[in-house]
Simulated scan of single mutants.
Amino acid sequence: MNDLHAVNTILADHLRIVLVGTQHPGNIGAAARAMKTMGLSKLVLVAPEKAPDRDTLAMAAGADDLVERASVFASLAEAVADCRWVLGATARNRRIQLEPLHPRDAAQRALVAAAAGPVALVFGRERTGLNNAELQLCHAAVHIPSDPAFSSLNLAAAVQVLSYELRCALLGDAGSAGQSRTPPPTAEVAAHAELEGLFAQLADTLDQIDFHKGRAPDSAMRKLRRLYLRANLDSADVRLLRGVLADTQRMARIAGEASVDKKIR
């Protein structure tokens, strides 16, 4: 039992709740309280509109330590740079076509991924949620199946629901995870920052070889991101792919220089 407790403590330590662009300081405290009741302790704030204040601590109701230890980042990309899996909480369909997960399945998969390293569960702004650029940084999306006739959940309530599912998964009460297109990450899966470096180089390479032929690149990049994220690339995979892209860029430069020389002659 002690061994199981130790394992669960390590896994819980790898689970972080990320609040993006929080507009009301009290909601930070309420979210911290929701987390602490479920044994979670890693709170991350991304560009909050207002810093935590007296309202935050009042709403935390004893979870002041989570607020005081919370990490603060200027961007979501920085906040999840070391993560092995990033899950975006969203209330509606977006143009970013992420794999949709039920909260129970999401919690089970988050727990498996946490064995490999840090996992982030990301929540957006109270009024508008996560924007498309932020969702694009996520591996999958989770949607709380609330009543369509009155589907609005406040931020802390959403954090409470998903923290509860994570708690159940940690305690082994949630049952087996549902079937998913994407297998959970392994211990060797590449960190988020490595993948973002790959995607940035891929975008540059596609531009250099005129892959898009004048079409908007966003659609192709969204599909390519999903394809690579489903593959659960490890660091060696990323290095190999970036090596291929580097050679592609080099050949594109040589071809471009040859074309310029030909025109000059």
Rank of each mutant, 00 (worst) to 15 (best):
S71Y: 09
A252E: 00
L43M: 05
D261A: 14
A58V: 10
A81N: 02
G117W: 13
R95S: 13
A63W: 05
R104K: 14
L98Y: 00
S41A: 15
A149I: 13
G39C: 10
C83T: 02
V122G: 01
G172A: 06
P52A: 06
L15H: 08
D3N: 13
A30E: 09
V244F: 10
L98D: 00
D105G: 11
A32T: 08
D218C: 09
A12I: 13
A190G: 00
D64V: 12
V72W: 01
L19M: 03
L45T: 06
N154L: 03
D105Y: 04
R92V: 07
T128N: 07
P48G: 04
T37Y: 08
V159N: 00
V244S: 01
D147I: 11
A110P: 02
V159E: 03
Q97W: 09
N93A: 15
A30G: 09
E257C: 03
M38D: 06
L40S: 04
H14L: 06
P103W: 03
Q108F: 08
D3L: 15
G129K: 01
L171S: 13
V46F: 05
A158Q: 05
L76T: 04
R125F: 04
G62E: 12
L170V: 07
G197K: 03
P52V: 01
A158L: 04
R265S: 09
L19K: 02
T186G: 15
F199N: 00
A107V: 12
V20N: 01
E188H: 07
S75N: 05
A89V: 14
L135Q: 02
I17P: 01
K262Y: 15
K213D: 14
G129W: 07
I144M: 02
E126W: 05
K263W: 12
V189D: 06
D65G: 06
L101W: 14
G124T: 10
V20H: 03
I10N: 13
R250I: 08
W85F: 12
L15W: 09
H14Q: 15
S176V: 13
F123C: 02
R16C: 11
D147P: 07
C138P: 01
R253V: 15
R84S: 09
V260I: 15
A252D: 01
G178Q: 12
P103Q: 08
V72M: 06
A107K: 00
N232T: 08
R127Q: 15
D13Q: 14
A255E: 12
V20Y: 02
G175P: 07
V44Q: 00
A177M: 09
P183G: 01
A174C: 14
L245S: 02
P183N: 02
L11M: 08
A113Q: 08
A60I: 14
R167Q: 11
Q160M: 11
Q23G: 13
